[in-house]
């Protein structure tokens, strides 16, 4: 956990690069929420690393003043895990889209959750491939017509929330980029949470997805906290996760405390790896004795 340090250290802000997303893109709300969340927690910008894959949303690290790693498609999570294990004094976020996380990278998503590595994964889920100009994604709804599915999607969509619950994520939330304030709270909660925090965000693509629009979600979303949902109850969380239709829940589905991977990896108990001495310590002659 990064200790909030003195006010002399600069907090996160916008970088000198402006987002190149289409006007009205849901991702503007997400980058604003991430910035708000990190600022609110007063984590110095040099202690924050945002890792992404490839896709429109994966450009996000370029727009903030923290460290970033804009990796290849689908691999944000393993890169983020590597950063985190190299220096677990850092606050590490992974960001990306639904294709990146639930298509090409879904294996890493599942394994990161079961190992409860302490990072915060924010997906900008627009249920479409945007950067490649409009093909079906793993979360496109049944029947949706796209460039790659002109007669409609015939595969059931992945439900990221129930997948996360089943995979052992210890903080599972869903936000909406039309509600930046709540989203910032969910992201901040994820960063503060010790363990893998997953925040799936309805972040509409205004160019290629004419179904799951801002209006679509505004008419349907309701907040779990105002519906009496108990986020410590896994069964309730599963029940809420499969709600889809006229009413779609957003907010915190589930939270539980479990030891993180970093807690259980004995080498890391001596402090961040990057600050531990390198090279063979102690009795190197003894190390060679096993080969006699």
């Amino acid at each position: 956990m990064p200790a909030p340090t003195g006010p002399a250290l600069p907090l996160i802000g916008k970088s000198d690069t402006r987002p190149t997303w289409c006007p009205g893109c849901g991702d503007f709300g997400v980058v604003a929420a991430v910035e708000m969340a990190v600022k609110k927690l007063k984590i110095p910008s040099q202690d924050v690393v945002i890792v992404s894959g490839i896709g429109c949303s994966s450009n996000l690290p370029h727009f903030l003043s923290s460290y970033g790693f804009h990796a290849i498609h689908g691999r944000a999570i393993p890169v983020a895990e590597g950063v985190r294990w190299a220096n677990h004094g850092l606050t590490v976020l992974a960001t990306g889209g639904d294709g990146d996380g639930f298509g090409i990278g879904v294996g890493h998503f599942v394994h990161a959750m079961r190992r409860n590595v302490d990072l915060t994964y924010v997906t900008m889920d627009n249920q479409i491939y945007g950067l490649t100009t409009g093909q079906a994604s793993p979360t496109s709804q049944l029947g949706q017509k796209t460039k790659s599915t002109p007669t409609g999607v015939i595969e059931r969509p992945i439900d990221p929330i129930s997948l996360a619950l089943a995979s052992g994520a210890t903080y599972v939330a869903r936000g909406f980029s039309g509600d930046v304030k709540q989203l910032a709270d969910l992201v901040a909660g994820g960063i503060q949470h010790k363990g893998f925090a997953f925040v799936d965000v309805f972040s509409p693509c205004v160019t290629y997805n004419k179904i799951n629009t801002f209006d679509f979600f505004r008419q349907r979303v309701y907040k779990l906290e105002s519906a009496g949902h108990d986020p410590s109850d896994l069964v309730q969380a599963f029940a809420r996760s499969i709600e889809w239709g006229d009413k779609i829940p957003i907010g915190l589905f589930y939270r539980v405390e479990r030891p993180t991977y970093e807690d259980l990896e004995e080498v890391l108990t001596a402090g961040p790896l990057a600050h531990q001495p390198a090279g063979i310590r102690g009795d190197s002659a003894a190390l060679l004795d096993e080969f006699v």
Binding site: F69, P78, V79, A80, G82, R84, W85, A86, N87, A274
Partner: peptide, 8 residues
């Protein structure tokens, strides 16, 4: 690669 970027 992430770990190398991270400083080890």
């Amino acid at each position: 690669i992430g770990a190398s970027f991270g400083g080890v």
